[in-house]
Amino acid sequence: MPFAIALWQTTSPEGSDDTAFAAIDAALRAAAVQGAVTLVAPEIYLPGYNQPDIPARAQPRGGPWHQRLAALTRQHGCGIVIGYAERDGDHVYNSAVAIDATGREISHYRKIQLFGPREKSIYAPGNAVSTFDLNGIRTAMLICYDVEFAHLNRTLAAQGTRLLLVPTANPEPNTHVSRLVVPAHAINHGLTIAYANYCGTEGDITYCGTSIIAAPDAAILGMAGTTETLIVTDIARQPDPALLQTQLTDFRPV
């Protein structure tokens, strides 16, 4: 049975909610027309990953950003997975939310592996992974740097995860993450991984694009270049059984 997801590579809205939601509206409309169950957007898309005033702009879970997202998913009949700056009391988190096509929040995640001194100075780290059902498939979210850590992929695979949705803000020159790391983790842990990056420039960061969807046999189901792209791919294909790995069951701790 077909199961299409949309991978949205786009530029940062640079702190403008009007720009962000106009772009989300258009992307959801296009994804829905092509039959996507959900759209995967970049990391901290709200308000933009490299904005100077993240703590002041951060919003609570379920706040105005989420309400507007829920209205758009209901309108277009397509879910969304998107990164945002979450305010929770005195703490700010690098978070992602999954909202389904009815406007219901189905999962929420806080980035565990913070990248570099800037992220560590702004955000508190998350401390838990979680899985959820998406179209009958056990699914989870990680955020950018998280997906490079084998133990997180292994933990989720051991919990039955088969689909991993990853909002990302990966700068140049780190195209090796898309080309090598994501497909390697996909085949080693039996996962389909959708990794949605920015493109273009935001402040002093130039993003490398190359968003990717990799299958459990390391097949590349879709890969972007360095410009704005919407990739809609049916991930229900059967992987090559000769390439499927058994590392999860074979692993022997030492």
Rank of each mutant, 00 (worst) to 15 (best):
T155Y: 06
S95R: 07
L152N: 05
I143T: 15
T155F: 03
D133L: 10
G126D: 11
V92E: 08
H91E: 10
R87V: 05
A101C: 05
H108G: 01
L156C: 08
L152D: 06
A128Y: 15
A158I: 13
T139A: 09
G103I: 09
T102D: 12
G126N: 09
A140Q: 14
E105D: 11
F132N: 03
N153P: 08
L142H: 03
D88S: 12
E105Y: 03
I106F: 03
T131W: 09
S95Q: 09
E119H: 02
I112R: 11
F115I: 04
V147K: 01
A158E: 15
V129R: 10
F115A: 15
R154V: 03
A150H: 11
D133W: 10
R110M: 07
L134M: 10
F132S: 04
D146F: 13
N94R: 05
G103L: 07
Y123K: 06
N127H: 09
Y123C: 05
E119T: 07
D146C: 07
Y123E: 07
G116H: 04
I143A: 14
E148G: 06
L142P: 04
R104F: 03
I143D: 15
L134K: 06
G116F: 05
C144Y: 15
H151Y: 12
I99L: 07
S121L: 04
H91P: 00
V147N: 02
G89R: 00
I106R: 08
N153R: 08
T131K: 07
D90R: 10
L134P: 03
L134R: 07
L114I: 01
I106T: 13
G116P: 09
D90C: 00
R118C: 02
L156M: 05
E86Q: 08
R138Q: 14
R138W: 02
V97K: 08
R110S: 04
S130K: 10
V129S: 06
A128S: 15
P117I: 15
N135D: 13
H151N: 14
R87G: 09
S121I: 05
E86P: 04
H91S: 12
S95H: 10
A128I: 14
A128C: 09
V92Q: 09
L142E: 02
A157H: 06
G136I: 01
A157R: 13
Y145D: 14
R110I: 04
E148P: 00
